[in-house]
């Protein structure tokens, strides 16, 4: 779990130490009601993926996923696309567009989790 409220430190060394100490601290997975894919991803990984979607996918799709250089990824925009297709686009990208393949960085399980996350609109 990423430590959110870090006390102010003027020491870079301390910052690094704190980062290292921020090991997974929360092992309690919230009861999932949305999809089976969600049970294959730990609560900690889910938080990391949510962060990835908002911050890094958000570079192009907007932090609130309403679009940017890339299209919006809200449930309404994705309504006609199924989970497997979305996961496949995430993993392999879209040739000749800026959408890169994320396969080098995330697993297939992760991609399916993200597809569900987008489709169920549990986005901010």
């Amino acid at each position: 779990m990423r430590k959110r409220r870090r006390s102010l430190s003027t020491s870079l060394a301390l910052l690094v130490t704190v980062s290292l100490l921020s090991a997974p601290a929360c092992a309690v997975e919230p009861k999932d009601r949305t999809s089976t894919s969600q049970q294959n991803v730990s609560a900690e990984r889910a938080r990391e993926l949510e962060h990835l979607v908002r911050q890094d996918c958000g570079s192009c799709h907007g932090m609130t996923l309403k679009g940017g250089l890339g299209p919006g990824l809200t449930p309404e925009r994705l309504a006609s696309t199924d989970r497997a297709s979305i996961a496949s686009i995430i993993l392999d990208g879209v040739p000749d567009t800026p959408m890169p393949p994320w396969r080098p960085l995330i697993s297939e399980t992760d991609a399916v989790w993200i597809a569900d996350y987008l489709l169920t609109g549990r986005t901010p």
């Binding site: 890094d56 570079s59 192009c60 250089l69 990208g93 800026p98 890169p100 393949p101 994320w102 080098p104 960085l105």
Partner: peptide, 13 residues
Amino acid sequence: YGNGEAKLPVYKM
């Protein structure tokens, strides 16, 4: 400048 090589995936412009 890329010598015709395939671009690496661009994760941020």
